[in-house]
Design a binder for these strands. Structure first.
Lengths: 238, 238
DNA sequence: TAGTGGTCTAGACCACTTT
DNA sequence: AAGTGGTCTAGACCACTAA
């Protein structure tokens, strides 16, 4: 995968931070020391540190050094592009996926707009309910352009769609635009989720793009409001 | 500030993209051409392009070039660390701030935990209602460590707290952790907001840190659910 | 094959913090 | 004064895309 030196260094330091080998608030070795430790140029060290800083692992302070942040230990990280499967593995066992619908459809007007496609284009429609501790908490509705990604089965959907797309199909996901809003619960929400009396759901709309800038997937994640939590790490650069 | 070459180039290209001088999906000049245009080294050009990519302005494709993304034109950008004042200026006139409370308080247990301080520490408590089109839509509750930032007046709060903190006090905000959840509306919410029948609010908790890693501000933004929208741009790098 | 972005190097000077 | 991170340079080689 990642043979570049700076990514190896990045991953190595991430691991050390997560194992608390570098403790919160501790000072990392200086750039000079890291150069010697990994036997690379300063620029390569700096590339690794830049990524650590951007992902919220460290804070660099001019004249002082790089320090480990502890705010990155999120109990329920949903930020970035993490998938339910990745999330589940961080949360331990008690999660489960139920595939409710899996079919190829012609897009209606709404979907044509979301995916910026014509009515001729075929789309995979995948609806999954997510159980946490035996309660249906999240309803995931995925719409995927058939001409870009095809061959979905119930097994794949029960496992991880992303894993299939990235590892089996070899497609490279580049970025996503995410939108969070609150909507009144629909009949579909009430049918598939244990809403526990709530009449609204938190809707996370996700527009996923490939490396060549094509939009190929639109996802709606509909959450029971009391179980929803979104965490974001933001750096301020004007 | 903005004396560094790569930031000047970055800002210049941002401006050109926002003015559509570089149109959506168009190809930017190559790194070689940009080197000549700005008379800098390739590394300096690449630093500018890296920031453009990370902020969702462009997509770089190996062997092809850098292309302008159009998804960055958010009608209601709340991502990152943008403040209400900045937001308002993007939305035009029809917004208004009402300062409901402004006082120095001793932190209660909850606040001691949020700001990681002792009960001796004094804290500025600032409560503001935000009107959009004459409806009270957002309730901002700011808690700021007095020993770090002091001297708040009604005028400052009506204008922009961030502007005061950054430009007048000269403090440098470095990063923030943001948390979005949905809560049942409190009596305070009902008193200060036009909730229009809704019995929940979207709560955005914001923990703001300075460059020296000190946590100095905790903010709760409480939104009427139907008027809330959060947009995020996320790049996937494993 | 020519052009593009991705990685890596070695060296320089600066501004800031600490001693 | 010594150490730290921030910026900038010039040059090299690679992998990918296009003609």
């Amino acid at each position: 995968m990642e043979n570049s030196k700076y990514l190896i260094i990045y991953n190595d330091i991430v691991e050390k931070i997560e194992k608390a080998e570098y403790e919160p608030n501790a000072k990392l070795p200086s750039e000079n020391e890291l150069m010697q430790m990994y036997d690379v140029s300063r620029d390569t060290v700096r590339k690794a540190l830049l990524r650590l800083e951007q992902n919220g692992y460290i804070q660099k302070i001019k004249g002082k050094g790089s320090f480990v942040l502890d705010i990155n230990k999120f109990d329920f990280q949903v930020s970035g592009l993490i998938s339910f499967k990745e999330l589940a593995s961080k949360m331990g066992g008690s999660v489960q996926t139920i595939v409710e619908e899996l079919e190829v459809v012609k897009p209606d007007k709404y979907l044509q707009k979301q995916l910026q496609i014509s009515e001729q284009d075929e789309v995979w429609k995948i609806v999954r309910a997510r159980k946490i501790k035996d309660k249906r908490i999240i309803l995931d509705k995925d719409f995927i352009l058939k001409r870009v990604a095809d061959g979905f089965t119930k097994e794949i959907c029960q496992n991880s769609i992303y894993e299939y797309i990235e590892n089996v199909l070899g497609l490279k996901i580049s970025f996503a635009k995410k939108e969070i809003v609150v909507k009144n619960a629909t009949d579909e929400d009430k049918r598939y989720l244990d809403l526990d009396g709530y009449d609204v759901v938190v809707v996370v709309k996700n527009y996923v793009y490939l490396e060549d800038m094509t939009l190929f997937q639109y996802t709606e994640s509909r959450h029971r409001p009391d179980k929803f939590k979104f965490i974001d790490f933001a750096r301020r650069h004007k």
